[in-house]
Design a protein around this nucleic acid. Structure first.
Length: 482
RNA sequence: GCCUUAGUAGCUCAGUCGGUUAGAGCGGCGGACUGUUAAUCCGUAGGUCGUAGGUUCGAGCCCUACCUGAGGCGCCA
């Protein structure tokens, strides 16, 4: 039994003038006397004062950067100015030494690229510890938000049979021998011989299965990993990422937008209230990083200000058609600054979204009613509007500064014949979607939902520039070391 | 997948026009100091300049290919 107490509780003042034991890792050892100790429970470190005159030289030598120690003694009010309490240690035990001559981590700023290669150690840094505490906080807040509103946590499978959504390239799941797979008479791989008796993949989205939940339990949400085998090399894509997909019966596109906005604000508020030290640190970190950039490349607002701004202001809501008009009337378009011409019928490019969010409105924007031709088959077709150049669907995207699309959603097509027609138009395999169509044949209901990229939200809240730095073990093209 | 860019000490970087023995800060190591807050001070050891070719009297620097990282675009969340 260690009977150790946690540093967060110690710093909260629970143990003043008591004999306690703490365990943790060394962040700094100053003057052969002062250990700054962290154990993960708090952003701040506990100052452990080592009685160096009565401590063995061999122990003192091993109190090195990120070594793990156990210290016992009396907790007192600190004589120094940097902290309220400190532990006067009368015994220090080395639990795990860390030879500084070969340990790659150093008590100094190290680059994100370097730390990414040391994924097994990077969580010991202040930045990553803060990011991953917040990641937990966001995950917890997601469940709390939906639970408190009467939603049910719904599990969509990670191994999926359907290729229907077409959300991206997929990872094949198979137990067949890749060197000599069974073949049909015509020479194709015989997937009926495979483990599941058919071809299977890692899921790209849990939405279609979530609709089953919504049309039974009313309000559900998924929260789990999804996989895309796209060769995407950007700061905001992962091959494995977590997605939250609420799906709600008797919801239209406007209910859906309201839910999305309330949800985003709730998550940010939760972190602001529960992780103020971590946010303050990340705010300063981002500021230091920004100061190294040339003036014109800096963010308009700091992290904390951005988060508060999002929470305190209504999201702007516009239609796709209005968005195109704004873009075509914009200065950058007229001056030929856009690489791609915004025109009705073409999808908005990253540069267009960035202009709308960061320049024109300077706040999160929800764009809805996109052209039918550029959106997925299951999105509900709108009535033809004479003021709009073409057919649209009840889709919506929530756009955030810096990271772009954080949410994509829609009201779903509940009308069987319209849905079947769309499936045929897009040459999708109707036979694979039999159960999805059944949901419209038997007890169908209007419903809507959206998908939120978990890591993108964590990226936004922490201000991290690369999405690979907000997931413990990022999966990306050519990268699965840990 | 496409475009751009980078690779020099453990880390972050400098290295002029192609010219002698490749530098700094931090970190490490040795010592001093001992109520420090990224402690401070003194000293010291670290490099096949990503890899393989090529041009040249001479290459860290120029050329070619490859590898790896980063950023942008596309795809999306």
């Amino acid at each position: 039994m260690f009977n150790r107490v946690e540093i967060a509780d110690v710093l909260a003042g629970k143990y003043l003038n008591q004999e306690i034991t703490v365990c943790g890792w060394v962040r700094a050892f100053r003057n052969n006397r002062f250990v700054a100790l962290f154990d993960g429970s708090d952003f701040k470190t506990l100052q452990v004062v080592v009685d160096f005159e009565n401590t063995d030289e061999s122990v003192l030598k091993k109190i090195s950067f990120h070594a793990c120690i156990k210290a016992s003694g009396k907790l007192v009010e600190s004589q120094g100015a940097g902290q309220n309490y400190e532990l006067l240690a009368d015994s220090v035990e080395i639990l795990g030494e860390s030879n500084p001559e070969i340990y790659p981590m150093q008590p100094k700023q190290q680059s994100m690229e370097f730390l990414r290669e040391k994924a097994h150690f990077r969580m010991r840094t202040q930045t990553f510890a803060a990011v991953f505490r917040i990641r937990h906080g966001v995950a917890f807040a997601i469940h709390k938000f939906f639970n408190d509103k009467g939603y049910f946590y719904h599990l969509s499978p990670s191994v999926a049979a359907s290729d229907a959504e077409g959300a991206g390239e997929m990872f094949r799941v198979t137990t067949l021998d890749v060197n000599k797979p069974p073949r049909t008479e015509s020479g194709e791989i015989d997937w009926s011989e495979d483990f599941f008796g058919r071809a299977t993949n890692l899921t790209v989205s849990g939405q279609l299965e979530a609709e089953i939940g919504a049309l039974s339990l009313g309000k559900v949400y998924t929260f789990g990993p999804t996989f895309r085998a796209e060769n995407s090399n950007t700061t905001r894509h992962l091959a494995e990422f977590w997605m939250i997909e609420p799906e709600v019966a008797f919801f239209d596109i406007f209910d859906n937008m309201n839910l999305a906005e309330e949800f985003c604000k709730y998550l940010i508020n939760y972190i602001l209230q529960n992780f103020p030290d971590d946010i303050a640190f990340l705010d300063k970190r981002l500021q230091d990083e920004q100061n190294k950039l040339p003036q014109d490349q800096r963010r308009a607002m700091g992290l904390l200000d951005t988060l508060k701004f999002v929470v305190e202001n209504d999201f702007e809501r516009i239609t796709y058609t209005e968005a195109v008009k704004i873009l075509r009337d914009s200065k950058p378009f007229k001056k030929g600054k856009f690489e791609f011409e915004p025109s009705w019928g073409k999808d908005l490019q990253a540069e267009h979204e960035r202009y709308l969010v960061e320049k024109h409105f300077q706040k999160p924007v929800i764009v809805r009613n996109y052209p039918k031709a550029i959106k997925a088959f299951y999105m509900r077709q709108n009535e033809r509007d004479p003021d709009v150049p073409g057919e649209t669907v009840a889709a919506m995207d929530v756009l955030f500064p810096g990271i772009g699309e954080v949410i994509g959603g829609s009201q779903r097509e509940e009308r069987l014949e319209k849905l079947r027609a769309r499936i045929h138009e897009m040459h999708l395999p109707e036979e694979d979607l039999w159960w999805y169509l059944d949901l419209r044949r038997f007890g169908g209901a209007p419903h809507a939902g959206f998908g939120l990229g978990f890591e993108r939200m964590v990226q936004f809240i922490t201000g991290m520039g690369n999405i690979r730095d907000v997931i413990p073990f990022p999966r990306a093209p050519g990268s699965a070391e840990f």
